[in-house]
Design a protein around this nucleic acid. Structure first.
Lengths: 230, 230
DNA sequence: TTTGTTATTTGCGCCAGCGCAAAGACGGAT
DNA sequence: ATCCGTCTTTGCGCTGGCGCAAATAACAAA
């Protein structure tokens, strides 16, 4: 079932687009449906398409030559990803995009976006805005990794996820659906350490954790861990 | 002494600019001369200007609340910096820019660049190109920090610097002018560890090191450390 | 030359976090 | 109900890298 083109306005890069432009993008896109664990694209593939996630969740991961992974970003609905190739010719994806659950996305040729940007300054502009935000996030995460201890990094990762993908439960708490491995890749540590830290937090009543699940009981306590000067 | 506007074409973002545009930028810029150790701007300042380094060297650093620093980028002549504010309104610099030696830069109002981009797609385009390159570099460095051991990270930092700012000596070797502290901030470690690693490399004949100076004797050996699967 | 300042080296002790291994918990499938 | 695969927890030992402290080296100023 094709999506309503006007829904594309929820994509930050398209927020200032005209209805006609949205319809153009929709018409030039192909819907791709992907099962959990499968990939939209792999690191190193030629970056012919960029994507807009329509439903589900995905993650962008980068691997080093010996196969260790880091999670660069978690993608939720109406976020654009794989768009770095829209500028440079002959680009390849610098990371792989894997579905965390059954997901569908709209795939649009990068060349098309590029062409549209030529005559629509608002598009370049909003894409740049997205890029600067992302640069700033990466710079911060880089600094975090270089200067902060694990516990704080995990706290920050959890808070970032809470803001971005937290699911409100019936009783007003916030729940996250991630494996320890995922959380480790997001905070630059190992699943063992994440497990130990979560156990500790659970003892202190900050969270409640289960299989692929973390329930935030006391967000403020986490903020304190994330921010306090030690 | 005012610079020749046409020299601005050496700035990657201006590579496709017309001569008239270059003159416009030059006319709208103010030259600022800064002594070693002084700052072009501080993290947190409102990002009113962006800069083009005309002579000297500078570094972009980010500090965490307790004052620990990481070096995000080293800037050499004809590189643009502080341009993230060109897109978002009311932005503040996410990092500080400090001169590594006596330096001069052209300061141009971000708002002016923004205005120019409205009618000149090539400008947006080349700025985006710069941003994507930078994003990719940060992603890689982030992964490195998360997954690679110190020695390799230091090797990579040294190689990056060699490519970007290495000075060829009379006898064909390449020399870098950085303190151990700088190198530590570039590879996410401490000056002690950098010193130990350099000593070890010196024993192995890979480099020759002195005060604020590293002479690369065997670049290939460093590449091997940076790349090899262990 | 002398003195002061700043950068570097290195010994030493320490500990945060890694990673194996084994046990336990959970959930889906049949 | 049971089985199986996957995820999680935790004990244990280890070590890479940190960071103090003190010695040394290099440069600059006087």
């Amino acid at each position: 079932m094709p999506i309503d083109p006007l829904n594309l306005r929820r994509v930050s890069v398209f927020q200032n687009a005209t209805d006609d432009d949205l319809r153009l993008f929709a018409k030039n896109g192909i819907e791709r449906s992907i099962e959990e664990g499968e990939y939209f694209f792999f690191q190193g593939d030629p970056a012919i398409y960029f994507y807009v996630l329509i439903s589900g969740r995905a993650k962008l991961m980068q691997a080093n030559p010996s196969g260790q992974q880091v999670n660069l970003r978690t993608i939720s609905e109406w976020q654009m990803f794989g768009a770095l190739g829209a500028v440079s010719e002959e680009a390849t994806y610098p990371a792989s995009a894997q579905a965390l659950e059954h997901s569908t996305a709209l795939a649009i040729k990068s060349a098309f976006l590029k062409e549209m940007m030529n005559t629509r300054p608002y598009l370049s502009f909003d894409l740049m805005k997205l890029m600067t935000d992302y640069i700033q996030e990466m710079q911060e995460r880089y600094r975090e990794l270089a200067t902060e201890k694990v516990e704080r990094r995990i706290a920050r990762a959890v808070l970032r996820l809470t803001a971005q993908m937290g699911i409100k439960t019936a009783d007003g708490n916030i729940e996250l659906a991630f494996t320890r491995q995922d959380m480790a890749e997001m905070s630059g540590t190992t699943l063992y350490t994440v497990s130990r830290v979560l156990s500790e937090w659970e003892k202190r009543g900050l969270v409640e954790s289960g299989r692929e699940r973390v329930l935030i009981r006391n967000p403020h306590g986490l903020v304190q861990i994330a921010e306090e000067l030690d």
